[in-house]
Nucleic acid binder design. Structure first.
Lengths: 165, 165
DNA sequence: GTAGGATCGTTCGAAATTGAACCAGCCGGA
DNA sequence: TCCGGCTGGTTCAATTTCGAACGATCCTAC
């Protein structure tokens, strides 16, 4: 249904309810995962995500800004967290060959080990809370939705000044 | 960068990928909304959520702890944000009749007004990014998923010490 | 070459979030 | 009545995040 402008009935019942539920669920999801990670593995969710992205990459290394894009945070937050991980010895900061201003963040052996401890625990939690209980059709549907949303977000980010506010 | 995985279906292969995508999408979604709110309406997403919950409630008022449950944050964060909103004159802190230790947070006229300015803008963004592009079937499917996840989260939160594995 | 603009990563100050400690008021049972 | 435990909210220090400003490097056009 197109029909863009409804009047000041800003609380169209469905939109608001679904959206509120969505926010509630995603927040609680992240909260539980974060807690598990901190209690059992001594790292935050953000730090865990960094380790995962590194482990998934060729050479187990990435540039700072790719890391910032991948996770979705400000660059300064990545600097902060990578320093923290470096202090813990889970990550190594090296110069980037191709680009002298770049930093090549690399997973250390200790980093791999820590991740191998944490990942099964977290993945099983993710399955338990998020994936196990939904069937294939729902999963396929979810995947479609994620793709659509992702495209929408790309488009939305591309047109910042667009149209009459 | 996704690959077409049709028959491997859903199970083992890419829990990680779907989960990563989910996180990425939700973070970007919140980020864009937050930005719009701050740029155009001078409040953060958290503050906006507080105003919305209040507006949805009878008497346009709520207890602090209900607010904390509704949004998903620590109680101290609610204290902080409600103070901030109170300084802005969008919200009023009163004693609670029934319970002397309670605080009755109430939307002011200015709060209603501010919300009525912001809400259409935000809801249309939510529709644009999140809802418009999915059809009724998908929306229904999503709603089911949200319910399942919500139940899972309730169950997961209920059993803190037990660990199957 | 070289100037101009974009990109990379850090630094800094301000804001937000968290968890633990804490006080005060509620509630149940002896 | 009184006493322990529970709940509602606040405070405080510590952590994390953000955005803007910055120096350095890359890149393209001239």
């Amino acid at each position: 249904m197109g029909a863009g402008d409804f009047e000041s009935r800003w609380l169209a019942p469905d939109v608001n309810a679904v959206w509120a539920r969505f926010l509630n669920v995603t927040h609680r999801l992240e909260h539980q995962i974060d807690r598990r990670l901190q209690d059992h593995h001594g790292i935050t969710h953000t730090q865990y995500e960094i380790l995962v992205r590194l482990a998934d990459s060729d050479e187990r290394a990435m540039r700072m800004s790719d890391l910032a894009d991948s996770i979705v945070t400000a660059k300064s937050a990545v600097t902060y967290q990578v320093n923290r991980l470096s202090e813990m010895g889970l990550v190594e900061r090296n110069k980037c060959d191709r680009d002298n201003r770049g930093i090549w963040v690399k997973l250390t052996a200790a980093g791999v080990e820590r991740l191998e401890q944490a990942a099964p625990c977290i993945l099983s939690l993710v399955r338990e809370l998020f994936l196990d209980a939904i069937n294939c059709d729902q999963a396929a549907e979810l995947d479609k939705l994620l793709e659509i949303w992702s495209d929408n977000l790309d488009a939305g980010a591309a047109e910042p000044p667009a149209e009459g506010r």
